[in-house]
Nucleic acid binder design. Structure first.
Lengths: 153, 153
DNA sequence: GGCTTACTACTCGGATACTGCTTGTCCGAGTTCAGGGGG
DNA sequence: CCCCCTGAACTCGGACAAGCAGTATCCGAGTAGTAAGCC
């Protein structure tokens, strides 16, 4: 899985901790020692998914488009990964000797269906958790907010 | 996700349909028009995971090590993927400005924990389905067994 | 003094290289089978 | 006729390249703020 998902999740949480005005990608990258340009790329994908809004010009940057309560892990994963599924069926059942001898398939591939069921469970578990839940977890260490705010000032 | 998982699943099902003696990787590859050498590589990983047993020499090949009832989708995925997890936490919370200002972390990363929960749901859904379930699905088209046997004779 | 205007600096945005892993290929080690020779 | 031995062919097994997606980088387009100039 793409490393950018981790970057995006932490960055979205940081954006919420700061609150208010837009924050530049350089500043956000510096907070976790990331590559500014590449984080910018991820933020662009989050902007396309309308999870953040981008503000051009000086004093510009990115800010959250919605409260964390309505942003699920699935939203972030799909924004970064681009909606590609974990298991991609290439329909090999239709190739080779077996494919030639078999009649054209009328129903879905059973292997694909089974893998999809599992993937569906994953997606459901992702969509059941919002970023606000993670924020609540982080707030159990009270210093966190303070540290993040002073690191992004 | 690796394409080899799909290859392995179909090949394991074919091995069961044939039943009995070992089948060479070349023959199994021909059944679906796959690269013989690469399929052989996947079968070796299945052998290491003790899902199949390899028989060297002429008339050798691979045969199932267990009945399909006790082989789950998770077994196959882990055999091919090698136990790597979908989301790998790189602990970026300990890097950069935030990492320097934060005290050494005492608990697990909340982002990682949330992603792990979702991944756990995926793995559980995978382990809840055995290859015998997929075989049952395939047997709803009665011709299937016959086609596979004649393709691998 | 107030307004307009040009400039500068800073931001996003997309086009451009690089790297690691999945994918694919090749050749060697080992084993079974077959055939020939000897008892 | 039966047994042993040698050879060959076929299999797995791991070491060796190629292609591609993820990773990382750079520079241009656009905008807000600023400062100077003009009315």
């Amino acid at each position: 899985m793409a490393k950018g998902v981790e970057w995006a999740l932490h960055t979205l949480l940081n954006l919420d901790m700061i609150g208010g005005g837009p924050v530049g990608s350089g500043q956000l990258a510096e907070a976790h020692g990331l590559s500014p340009s590449y984080l910018n790329k991820q933020l662009q994908q989050l902007a396309r998914a309308e999870l953040v809004v981008s503000v051009p010009g000086p004093r510009g940057g990115f800010r959250l488009a919605k409260p964390l309560e309505v942003i699920t892990l699935l939203d972030v994963v799909e924004a970064i990964e681009g909606g590609t599924q974990l298991f991609h069926c290439t329909e090999i059942r239709c190739c080779g000797k077996i494919g030639e001898l078999s009649p054209p398939p009328t129903d879905a591939c059973a292997v694909n269906a089974a893998m999809r069921r599992a993937e569906q469970a994953w997606r459901q578990a992702l969509s059941a958790q919002s970023l606000a839940d993670i924020r609540a977890e982080l707030d159990r260490t009270p210093m966190t907010r303070q540290v993040i705010r002073s690191a992004l000032n």
